[in-house]
Nucleic acid binder design. Structure first.
Lengths: 236, 236
DNA sequence: GTCCATTTGTGCGTATGTATT
DNA sequence: GAATACATACGCACAAATGGA
């Protein structure tokens, strides 16, 4: 059962995405929304605040709330996005091939990245993403085995996140993400079609469960020309 | 005058940053905070929700709210950040030199980037940022002259954002930000110390005022090895 | 400039639901 | 089951910004 403010929010998103409430137009006032959805002021305000956070509208004190140009939404993908989700939004085809999958004991450096003690058992997975006939992304995932048990090659070929969230029923809450550019590693040269470039973009993900324990460290290493990142930043 | 929930939020941030409330520790419950600050439930909840959004704490239903490791905060700089602010956080020295500053009429492509009609008058500014004796960032700013009047070389040498926000008293509300990697342009070769690299990281900013009008388009073009981006992404 | 209606922003109080211990 | 803590939802009052009469 969705909460009331979530329902209101989803309905408003529908209106905006279907173009019923157009770019730049004023959406109904809080009082009007209260009537439309038979909800209290606090409830509609929560829905509307979330819409603003997600970049659908801009509220202006004393005037109202206005729809922001749709283009902004289509291009932005904030939040934690796995490769599959991100690619579906761009509607490109791709294939995943698992190059390595095995358990290992964490050395000191790896343990630090995962916030665990050295020698903790990990699952290491290396996968290559092939788009338009070229190997362009190398994903290196490391999971804490105790927290994410039962990983298989089959799961790695599909969506590990779907397995974690739906099968294991773990709740992912947030990720710290770092993006930088590094010289190519041996793995990069071996697995990727580099087109002569000497560098790759590296997206590092430190992912945490609802209770604050880190369960994953991932590096997505991709060819410079395949990297694209977009988000919306709001001023305090 | 700061609002009550902002005061509560700031005080809690103080506690966390000064280490009084340590990493992983439980902060006082909502009921306790109500007593401590003589505030209503809704008010303390708003403060606590904002703290979670900003990555200071993690709330867990039925258990409490817990401080997230400080390292996460120090490294992340979400939000709209000008070069000056971003660098101060890393405590590195830098100098800015203005290479070009003049008015021009927008051509068709530029007009599209700024969401204005062709031939609209713009202010173009090119600045080079020098860090540790090397020219590593080329900032190209384009402002809509009507919206941001009175730009001078002196302002460009310091902080344009401070001028816009404090002198012109305009309210910046959000920015759409795109990050990608491009081959070096003529300008890059001329102004930057490229160390033989053939590519630069380009951070594009489309910045909007409180009323939804775009007033700026900026490209920050930087050497691959000087690029670093970090944020915290929360699940839904 | 003043007054007024509208609209969002802040703050209070209360009740009930749900998760954890 | 009981106690505690966060989540949702309702209602009310007043402040602050906007825009038109």
């Amino acid at each position: 059962m969705m909460s009331k403010y979530e329902q209101i929010m989803e309905e408003i998103i529908e209106h905006i995405e279907r173009g019923k409430w157009k770019d730049g137009a004023k959406i109904p006032s809080e009082t009007e929304l209260m009537g439309m959805y038979e909800a209290s002021r606090g409830t509609v305000r929560k829905a509307v605040d979330l819409l603003q956070e997600r970049g659908y509208i801009q509220k202006i004190h004393g005037k109202g709330a206005f729809v922001i140009h749709k283009k902004n939404i289509e291009l932005s993908f904030g939040g934690i996005v796995s490769f599959k989700e991100a690619n579906e939004r761009f509607k490109r085809g791709y294939t995943t091939s698992v190059k390595e999958i095995h358990k290992l004991k964490a050395d000191r450096d790896t343990a630090k990245l995962l916030g665990v003690k050295a020698k903790t058992e990990l699952d290491l997975i290396k996968r290559v993403r092939r788009v338009d006939g070229e190997n362009v992304i190398l994903d290196v995932n490391m999971f804490v085995s105790d927290l994410v048990p039962g990983l298989t090659r089959e799961i790695a070929e599909n969506s590990i996140y779907a397995y974690i969230e739906h099968t294991l029923n773990l709740q992912i809450s947030y990720a710290r993400r770092v993006i930088e550019v590094q010289p190519c590693s041996e793995d990069d040269r071996q697995y990727l079609d580099l087109n002569g470039t000497e560098y790759v973009v590296v997206v590092k993900n430190f992912t945490y469960l609802y209770d604050g324990t880190q369960f994953e460290y991932t590096e997505s290493r991709m060819r410079l020309d395949k990297f694209y990142f977009s988000d919306i930043a709001r001023r305090s």
